[in-house]
């Protein structure tokens, strides 16, 4: 190998190294907003109190400019025959299940985004279009999203929905914890309308103690489990119930944040770009040695 090209080699390698280090520094800043504030808000959903009136569904649509229809039509009980899921047309839905302990009344379960403490969707989003805000809400940014739907793959509660039938400007649709309303000091629309306050809005830590208190005071009414206190690493929306949550179609994502494994792999690979850079150097070295050997072979000949 000639002297000049060897110098080239070293010079360029150094340059690339510097470039990548620069990159890694800027990438550290480029993470999406993911705040786990001490004072984050939450909602405690008491499924033993919820009456399945579905007014929250109506209010949610009204608050999010989705076609909501007449509120009286929400008195229709037939929708409970099939399980429904939040979708691009309804960010929250209520499903009905048969009675649990201590009551003959059916159990109604409102479903919406759980606003996880360690949201998988935020961690997964390719462009950081989702963010966890100071007040606990996980919201979506229309100006960033590219529509790859990886958040849907990642969400352990299967929440984000996508407007598949729009050719232009399709959106990821999910409960935003009424981010705009709470910013103005209002309650989330569903919390505000709920006639029985099955939805209690407040600081998450306070909600947990309230929930524990309710369970302690009324052990016949509740099972001793606050769904969402630990699930998937904790969620802002939590549930009380009078039967196993699995029976109410709640998933069992485990207590570890869904993002744990993949984030640690991700960080392992990208820890300050050391692994890729060393791989680069290694390959460069092998290449250099092989080339060198070959040219000295030739010289010997």
């Amino acid at each position: 190998m000639s002297g000049s090209s060897r110098r080239d080699f070293l010079k360029t390698s150094a340059l690339i190294g510097a470039g990548i280090t620069g990159l890694s520094i800027s990438s550290a800043k480029a993470a999406p907003k993911n705040i786990l504030s001490e004072n984050r808000m939450g909602v405690l959903v008491d499924t033993t109190v919820c009456i399945g009136c579905r007014q929250c569904e109506w209010a949610c649509k009204e608050a999010h400019d989705l076609p909501a229809g007449n509120i009286a039509s929400y008195e229709n009980r037939e929708v409970f025959y099939n399980m429904r899921r939040p979708s691009e047309n309804a960010l929250t839905v209520v499903n009905q299940y048969s009675a649990g302990k201590g009551s003959d009344l059916p159990v109604d379960v409102k479903v919406q985004c759980m606003h996880c403490d360690h949201p998988a969707c935020v961690s997964a989003c390719i462009v950081g279009a989702l963010s966890k805000e100071e007040n606990g809400s996980v919201i979506w940014d229309t100006d960033k999203c590219i529509g790859c739907r990886y958040c849907m793959v990642a969400c352990p509660f299967q929440i984000p929905a996508f407007q598949y039938n729009k050719a232009l400007d399709p959106k990821i649709m999910k409960c935003d914890f009424c981010f705009e309303r709470t910013k103005e000091g209002k309650l989330p629309a569903c919390v505000e309308i709920c006639p029985v306050e099955a939805l209690t809005y407040g600081p998450r830590t306070e909600l947990i103690s309230i929930a524990k208190d309710r369970i302690k005071r009324d052990p016949d009414r509740y099972i001793d489990h606050i769904y969402g206190e630990k699930e998937a690493g904790g969620t802002a929306w939590m549930y009380l119930g009078n039967q196993e949550f699995a029976k109410l179609d709640f998933p069992e994502p485990g207590d570890k944040p869904a993002v744990g494994v993949s984030e640690s792999i991700q960080h392992g690979i990208f820890a300050y770009f050391v692994p890729p850079v060393s791989l680069y150097a290694l390959l460069g070295g092998i290449m250099w040695i092989n080339k060198h050997r070959k040219s000295s072979d030739e010289e010997e000949k």
Partner: peptide
Amino acid sequence: IGRWYFIWHPLIMWNGTSAL
């Protein structure tokens, strides 16, 4: 991707935790 006209976004909007 649903919003194909934003395919260039990852170039300037980074999320280090995302495998994608």
